Simulated assay, not measured.
Amino acid sequence: MIHWLRNLLCGVLIGAGAILPGVSGGVLAVVFDIYRPFMEVLTHPAAALPKYWRWLPPLGIGWCIGFLGLARGISASMDWSDAVTTWLFIGLIVGTIPSLFREAGKEGRSGGAWVSLVLCAAAVFFGLFYVQHVLKISVEPNFWWYNFCGVLWGMGIVIPGMTSSSVMMALGLYQPMMDGLARMDFVVLSACLPGLAITVVLLARGVTWLFRRHYAVAFHGILGAVAASTLAIIPTEYTGGGEAALSALLCLGGFALAYALDRLDQRIRT
């Protein structure tokens, strides 16, 4: 039961992380040790399902709660205080970095792995900066653009470190997507969910091959992407000292939650 609840909570966090700007659901799946089993199920279902079928129900339920059920809450909380909500998720990400660092070093840390870390960090940071502050393009939301959002979310699940929501914010699509998910709009759901599922299936084999052949390089690249995407979303504007203090408190709370999940996971494995 504890393991089931742990996987449910991880699914909620991964689903919520997928729709928060600057946060990658794939990265959260990696640090919660769900990514590799998930990719095995996608690429070799006949062999993987007998091993991991107990994981799927709580993860699937949790992901739906986080992605669909919390869309309204996340949208409302960001309207109330974008800084406080973002700092909560920054705390969650920072709390997972130690476990991500351990995971990245399981097969050693070569010179190429450190180069991958630096290059991926620089590419993600400057890419997000360019999209957010240089490319200020807004588009008219419609069925095809919502499908494009689903493709971006699918890439964020399969490619850890891919911060799809930040791209949507730069294009002016993020708020319409959140509003549509919050009210369960049929046009939004029928466009983004199929695009998400198709992207996940099509990219799964290629990403799995990369991890199998170049594990340390790929994982250190993820670590750099996590650090860079976290730096890129740090809020710089606050309405007052109260908001700044609440942001710090929730950041510590997010860190404590992620740390407790990591300790619980280690205890369950033992």
Rank of each mutant, 00 (worst) to 15 (best):
A18C: 12
F255C: 04
Y130R: 04
Q175M: 11
P176W: 11
W63Y: 15
W144E: 05
H44K: 10
L203I: 06
G254D: 00
S165H: 06
A225C: 10
I97W: 05
A18T: 11
I233H: 11
S164N: 04
I2G: 14
A113C: 06
V201W: 15
K106G: 10
V23N: 08
F125T: 02
L203A: 12
L9R: 03
A228N: 01
L117Q: 07
G154D: 04
A104M: 11
F148P: 06
H214T: 00
L8F: 15
T86Y: 15
A47I: 01
D82P: 00
A248R: 02
F89N: 09
A48H: 02
L117C: 11
F101W: 11
G150E: 03
F89D: 09
A122S: 09
I159A: 10
F125H: 02
C120S: 12
L252A: 03
E107T: 10
L181Y: 06
L28H: 12
E243K: 02
P37C: 02
A170G: 09
G127W: 01
T230K: 06
L152C: 12
A71D: 08
P235T: 07
A191D: 05
G11H: 06
L223A: 12
I74D: 11
L257N: 01
I14V: 15
N7C: 09
H220C: 08
L261I: 05
M178V: 06
P58T: 03
D179L: 14
I2Y: 15
L261D: 02
L68S: 13
R269E: 11
V151E: 04
D185K: 05
V124C: 07
A232I: 00
L189M: 14
L171Q: 09
G112W: 10
I137N: 09
M1G: 14
A244W: 08
G221Q: 08
V31K: 13
I90W: 06
A232N: 01
L92G: 01
T199S: 14
C149P: 02
V12I: 13
G242E: 03
V30I: 12
F101V: 07
G66E: 04
L117K: 07
Y238P: 00
F186P: 08
A29N: 08
V41F: 07
A46L: 11
I14M: 15
F38K: 00
I198T: 10
